[in-house]
C-alpha cells in the first residue's frame, strides 16, 4: 500500500463580484481551478519532486495534503485513510505523521518565540511526550539540523540569519518524527551560497530518519540527486510525470522542454536556445476549452484547442504526459 495516494485532487476558488458589479456590468461569478485532477502516489522512502511556476497549483496541492485546506474534489489517502473524512481531532493526530516546511524562513516563525519553544510547540500541542522527554528530543533535533543547542535555544528569529531560521523550520517539522514531509520551496528565499547545504541536510535527514518527501520547487537544478520521481505542473494540472532523470534527459511535454531551456546558466559564453514557447499571455482566469497550455504552445494543432488531453503514458513507460501530440514528440 502506498504511503500517500492522491486521486483526482481538485481545488476551486470562486470569485464573487460585488452586487454592484454584477448589476452594472453583468459580471458573473467566476471559478478558478487552482488544482485540477491531480493524481499521484508516493511510497515509503521516496522523494517526489513537484516543479512548476507560480500559479501552477503546487503550493495549493501541498496545503491540501498537509490538511491545511480542504479539497474541493478528489481524495487524499494516507496509509489508506481518507483524510477528507477527518474531523478536527483526527486531523490534529494526522499532523504527527505529515508535516510541512515552509518557504519563508522569517514569516513561518513566531517572532515572539525562542527557538526552543518554536521547535517544542508541535510536540507540546499534540501532547506527545513529557516535558523532560520533549526537552531531550528538541535539543537533539537542534543539534541534528546543525544548530548547537546551547547557543541557539534562546534566540529569537530576528537574531538569526535566513539559513539558521530555515534550519529551525526544518527542526520544527521533523521533531515529531513525521513519516511524510512536504517541503514547499524551502530554499528559494535563501542565499544561493547556502542552499546546497540546507538541501543536503534535508536529504541526509530523510535517509537517516526514514521519511518520504514531497519537494516542491520552481528550480529543477537543485533537485538533482535528491529527487526520485518528478511531476511537472502547469496551471493546476500535471502535464508530465515520471522519474527525474528520464524527464530531464527527455522532456516530452513542450512546457517541460521550455522550462529546461529557460533556466539561466552561470556562464557568460553560453548562448542559450530560445525556449520554443509563445511569450507572455496575460494571466488566464477563465477555463478554456482544450489544453490549458495550447495558447502558449508553438506546436498546438486544432485538436489542442478543442479537447483537453488526458495524462497517459508516452512512448517510453517511465513517463506519462498530458499532450495530444505525445506520440509525435520524441
Amino acid at each position: 500500500m502506498a504511503l500517500l495516494d492522491v486521486n483526482s485532487l481538485s481545488k476551486r476558488y470562486e470569485l464573487r463580484p460585488s452586487v454592484l458589479a454584477r448589476v452594472l456590468s453583468g459580471k458573473r461569478m467566476r471559478r478558478i481551478e487552482a488544482v485540477r485532477d491531480v493524481t499521484f502516489a508516493l511510497n515509503e522512502g521516496e522523494v517526489l519532486g513537484i516543479v512548476g511556476e507560480s500559479g501552477c497549483g503546487k503550493s495549493t496541492t501541498c496545503a491540501m495534503i498537509a490538511g491545511l485546506e480542504p479539497p474541493s474534489a478528489g481524495t487524499i489517502r494516507f496509509r489508506g485513510q481518507d483524510i477528507g473524512a477527518f474531523g478536527a481531532k483526527a486531523l490534529r493526530r494526522y499532523r504527527r505523521h505529515v508535516q510541512i516546511i515552509f518557504q519563508d524562513p522569517f514569516e513561518s516563525l513566531n517572532p515572539r518565540l525562542q527557538v526552543f519553544d518554536q521547535v517544542a510547540e508541535g510536540p507540546r500541542a499534540l501532547g506527545l511526550w513529557s516535558e523532560a522527554e520533549t526537552e531531550q528530543r528538541v535539543l537533539r533535533m537542534l543539534a541534528d539540523v546543525g544548530l548547537p543547542p546551547a547557543a541557539y535555544r534562546n534566540r529569537f528569529p530576528h537574531q538569526m540569519s535566513g539559513g539558521e531560521r530555515q534550519r529551525v523550520g526544518i527542526a520544527s517539522a521533523l521533531v515529531s518524527e513525521p513519516e511524510l514531509v512536504i517541503a514547499d520551496e524551502p530554499l528559494s528565499m535563501l542565499d544561493v551560497s547556502i542552499r546546497a547545504g540546507i538541501r543536503d541536510l534535508l536529504s541526509e535527514l530523510a535517509k537517516r530518519r526514514r521519511f518520504s518527501v514531497i519537494y516542491v520547487s520552481h528550480d529543477l537544478s537543485i533537485m538533482k540527486g535528491f529527487v526520485h520521481g518528478l511531476i511537472v505542473m502547469y496551471l493546476g494540472q500535471i502535464v508530465e510525470a515520471g522519474t527525474f532523470s528520464s524527464i530531464v534527459a527527455n522532456p516530452q511535454h513542450p512546457y517541460t522542454a521550455a522550462l529546461l531551456a529557460a533556466v539561466p546558466v552561470p556562464d557568460p559564453l553560453f548562448r542559450r536556445a530560445v525556449p520554443d514557447i509563445v511569450d507572455d499571455v496575460a494571466r488566464p482566469l477563465a477555463s478554456l476549452a482544450g489544453c490549458r497550455f495550447a495558447p502558449r504552445c508553438r506546436q498546438a494543432v486544432d485538436i489542442c484547442h478543442r479537447e483537453p488531453p488526458e495524462l497517459a503514458a508516452s512512448g517510453n513507460a517511465a513517463q506519462s504526459v498530458r499532450c495530444h501530440l505525445r506520440h509525435r514528440l520524441q
Partner: peptide
Amino acid sequence: RAARARGCS
C-alpha cells in the same frame, strides 16, 4: 499557518 500545521488547536 505553521502553528496549525504543527498540530496546534
